[in-house]
C-alpha cells in the first residue's frame, strides 16, 4: 500500500529512532494521532523535536522503528509526501522570487488545480495577499514566516508538521495562523505542533507531550489537564536537565 487512506490513523509512530553517529537524537518514540487531533510537543533545545518532524516529513530516514502517515510508512513515495505539509525553522522559500511565485510553485509541484487561485487563497488566509508581488527577501522575517506557512498549506495537507511556527509572528500573524490551524483541524487534518510556548500549544492541542533527550517523557490527552500544574511539571523536567 503506497497511498495514504483515511481509515488508518493519520500518524502512527512506533519505536522511532534516529542516530547521528552514535548519538540518538530520537530514541524509541511512539504515539498515534487521528485526523482532527493536534499534538503539542514541548521540549528544550536539542531534545530531538526537529529530527522527529523531519522523519515524519520523509526528509530523514529512521535508523529503526516506523512512522506511518495514513497507514503508509515514511519515507514513502510521492503519494504520502503529498499528504504532508511542513513548516520548518527555515522558510523553504526562494528569496529572489515573489511571495506569489513561491506559493504558486509549491501548488504546481503538488499538482493543485488552479494553482494561482489556490496560492492567492493561501496567502489571503495568512493575511499577506497584499504582499503577493513582493520578492520574499524584501519582506520582514514575520511576513516571510506567513508566506512560508501559506506555502506549506496550499495543497491542503491532511498532516501538518509545524516547527516553532509562532516564532517571529506578530499578534495579527499569530491570530491568522491560529485560525488557519483551527480550520485545518476541523477539516480533519492531524497536526503536530512543536513549540516552546506552553500557552499557545495547550490552547490548540488535543494531546500533549514533553520530549527530552530523544524520548517522550510525558504523553497524555489535553482533556482536563490543569495548565498551570502542567507548566510547573514541564519546568521541573527541563530544569532537571533530563
Amino acid at each position: 500500500m503506497t497511498v495514504p487512506d483515511r481509515t488508518s490513523p493519520a500518524i502512527d509512530v512506533r519505536g522511532l529512532t534516529r542516530a547521528f553517529g552514535g548519538r540518538r537524537a530520537v530514541d524509541g518514540v511512539a504515539f498515534t494521532l487521528r485526523g482532527g487531533e493536534c499534538l503539542a510537543l514541548f521540549g528544550p533545545n536539542g531534545a530531538g523535536k526537529t529530527t522527529l518532524l523531519r522523519m515524519l516529513a520523509g526528509l530523514l530516514r529512521p535508523t529503526s522503528g516506523t512512522a506511518r502517515i495514513g497507514g503508509v510508512a515514511v519515507p514513502g513515495g510521492p503519494a504520502v509526501r503529498a499528504a504532508v505539509g511542513l513548516i520548518s525553522h527555515a522558510s523553504l522559500l526562494y528569496g529572489a522570487l515573489t511571495a506569489l511565485e513561491n506559493v504558486e510553485l509549491a501548488a504546481k509541484l503538488y499538482g493543485v488545480r488552479e494553482p494561482r487561485a489556490a496560492a492567492l487563497r493561501a496567502l489571503e488566509a495568512m493575511r499577506v495577499r497584499d504582499r503577493a508581488a513582493t520578492p520574499v527577501r524584501a519582506l520582514s522575517r514575520g511576513l516571510q514566516q506567513r508566506v512560508s506557512i501559506a506555502r506549506a498549506m496550499v495543497h491542503e495537507p491532511s498532516v501538518v508538521l509545524l516547527d516553532e511556527p509562532f516564532t517571529g509572528l506578530d499578534a495579527a500573524g499569530a491570530a491568522a495562523l491560529t485560525s488557519a490551524l483551527v480550520a485545518l483541524r476541523s477539516s480533519g487534518a492531524a497536526l503536530v505542533l512543536v513549540t516552546h510556548n506552553l500557552d499557545e500549544g495547550l490552547s490548540l492541542a488535543t494531546h500533549v507531550a514533553i520530549m527530552t533527550a530523544g524520548r517522550f517523557v510525558r504523553f497524555e490527552e489535553r482533556g482536563a489537564l490543569d495548565a498551570p500544574a502542567y507548566a510547573a511539571a514541564y519546568r521541573e523536567l527541563v530544569a532537571r536537565g533530563a
Partner: peptide, 14 residues
C-alpha cells in the same frame, strides 16, 4: 544504551 537494537546504519559501538 542497548546496542542490540542498533541498525546497521549506526557505526558499531561494541
Amino acid at each position: 544504551m542497548n546496542d542490540s537494537t542498533l541498525h546497521s546504519h549506526a557505526p558499531p559501538i561494541a
